[in-house]
Design a protein around this nucleic acid. Sequence first.
DNA 1: CCAAAAGTGTTACAATTACACCCATGA
DNA 2: TCATGGGTGTAATTGTAACACTTTTGG
Lengths: 231, 231
Amino acid sequence: MAEATFKNINTHAIEIDSYLRVALSVDCVIFGFDEHELKILLIRSDLTEFKNKWTLLGDLVRPDEDPDKAAYRVLRDRTGLKNVYLEQVHTFGKPGRHPAGRVVTIAYYSLVNIEKVKLTTLAHELHWHPVKDIRQMAFDHRQIFDTCFQQLQTAVLDRHVGFGLLPPKFSLSKLQRVYEAILGETLDRRNFRKKILAMDILEDLEEIETNVSHRPGKLYRFKGRINQKFC
Amino acid sequence: MAEATFKNINTHAIEIDSYLRVALSVDCVIFGFDEHELKILLIRSDLTEFKNKWTLLGDLVRPDEDPDKAAYRVLRDRTGLKNVYLEQVHTFGKPGRHPAGRVVTIAYYSLVNIEKVKLTTLAHELHWHPVKDIRQMAFDHRQIFDTCFQQLQTAVLDRHVGFGLLPPKFSLSKLQRVYEAILGETLDRRNFRKKILAMDILEDLEEIETNVSHRPGKLYRFKGRINQKFC
DNA sequence: CCAAAAGTGTTACAATTACACCCATGA
DNA sequence: TCATGGGTGTAATTGTAACACTTTTGG
């Protein structure tokens, strides 16, 4: 079992043979919030193994590209957006997970303001899918989605990342709907407002909604960054 | 910017050129608990760039090896242990992080019962370091350690993973010392006991400590698995 | 004036914190 | 008998959960 010494990459200068290398990709679960519903952005695969199955947006990480940057690149290319919330979640690397050979993928989720997303191309039926309708997906993407969605549910309570799904100005009701969509449960309006306002993370813009056929809500802005992980 | 279509690995059958491949490693932050202190297992690097700096235990992931399995392999080879708590934390892949070229590493932390660890070889001064003494490390290993330690601090409260550091039978005081060592703060004894016992995750073994020069504590066993992620 | 959603406080309950004395053992 | 850590309960505080009516707007 244990030999006298281990030669490895942390302790010794070692040649990394080509056969030891793997392809590295990033896959992004891009969440958007459409009035009342959480959605993710998907395209169809053309691979014979997964013909017509839905897949996440991803790409190979380029030589000398930081994986985080690669994920931002995918987002920018697909949504036109630059300043979005992005968080690395988990790396999936089971052998056989990809028909093209050994492809290890780093999964990210990101939160975008869906109104700002201009889908510049609808190639491969790129479009938004309600989270509640997600069934089978290509590769292990269903598992990746599940992991990312769980992470989002934790993060919205712990770190209040939900603001990433909203425009800069929003009413408390919109914010509540975001929390409800992510958590999949309804929340008490008074308790929600109390809690959020007590956190002192919102700035009252002294403005109200317009063109709503009911009493307009006050508008707020999220103070500071959602967390340190912006690009 | 956005082209009409993107050819990528999720949608098209693509040749993965060799230059797109990277070396993939795993690095393990192996935590042990030595009476009153949290420690991690480190060795010294021989690489000229990091001569005599401390490094985590890691290795290249083998062709067709599941990264999780690779992490278990590293643990088994270095500690002789098989059934340990292991959790993937984050993947670090900044270009330039490793002098051998493009090496992307998946970081794990693991929790072992330090009494069971027989360091079969002391090559490269393999030994336990108090967490509080950790300073500089080779590569980006200091950052990896910080990330894993933070994760552990969250996990011990959320998922009570701390049991992984203890032998099967332990007293409540030992358990409390584990929590205190991980969190870096002292806890109230009565409140701690109340909380842990209320969770109904401990089995009273109807045994007591022996050979202690004070009133012996009752021994308990952790019911069920720490979480689903055992090997 | 009707429909729709905004705004607002109080009370009950649960969880957390703070805190001090006696007990069992080995030396 | 002394030193050491084990074992135990209660009261105060804080946080969470439940709950209903009035207001403002557009149609």
